[in-house]
Amino acid sequence: MSRSAKLALGCALLLSLAAPAFAQAKKETARQYGVGHAATPAQIAGWDIDVRADGQGLPPGKGSVKDGEKVYMDKCAACHGEFGESAGRWPQLAQGKGTLASHDPVKTVGSYYAHVSTVFDYVRRAMPFGDSQSLSNDELYAVVAYVLNLNDIVDDKFVLSKETWTKVKMPNEGGFFDDDREKTEKAFWNKNPCMKDCRGPVTITGRAGSLDVTPEDEKSKRRGVE
């Protein structure tokens, strides 16, 4: 195969997202620099905290809605509210069902999340805010169960574990689709955009000044165009 043909083939594979084939073909020739050390199973175990949508990565353990209520009240309610309604401006975790198509969508675990793993993985790595990665596995399962219960996704007696994982059905599971801009926004590709008399008379329909929410110090700026 000629060099340019090989190059074209490489590009085509990339474009078709057939990355594995590309990686494999390259692997044979890739230079090994001998830099870096083997990661030991113990090292990996300490950091390997991600949980995938299909449940891969779930740790051993379990937790009930009832146990979760205690964890939640102790460590979450101050910001998220006792019922997940949010205290102040922190993220709301519950309610909001049926609002996604409204003028005021409220995105919560119950109204918006498509996967339980999303809650589990996030709480495991980032919560409680300011004390990340401090919950035990049982506490994690329990508090996730409680947040699901706040959203009426599981009943009061539910116990979340690796085994009961697949029983949870998220209400907005079918609410997402992959990026389709290249099809639905095809009109934005245009080699010759209009240059002259492209529209009728222009009127101002809204002003930032009338809302007046810009930080105040900008009002004292007095530097001209450079």
């Binding site: 991600d50 949508a53 995105k107 675990v109 999340y113 498509a114 793993s117 999303t118 993985d121 980032a126």
Partner: peptide
């Protein structure tokens, strides 16, 4: 993975 940052 469908993490929080690519879903919610």
């Amino acid at each position: 993975w469908y993490t929080r940052e690519e879903t919610s």
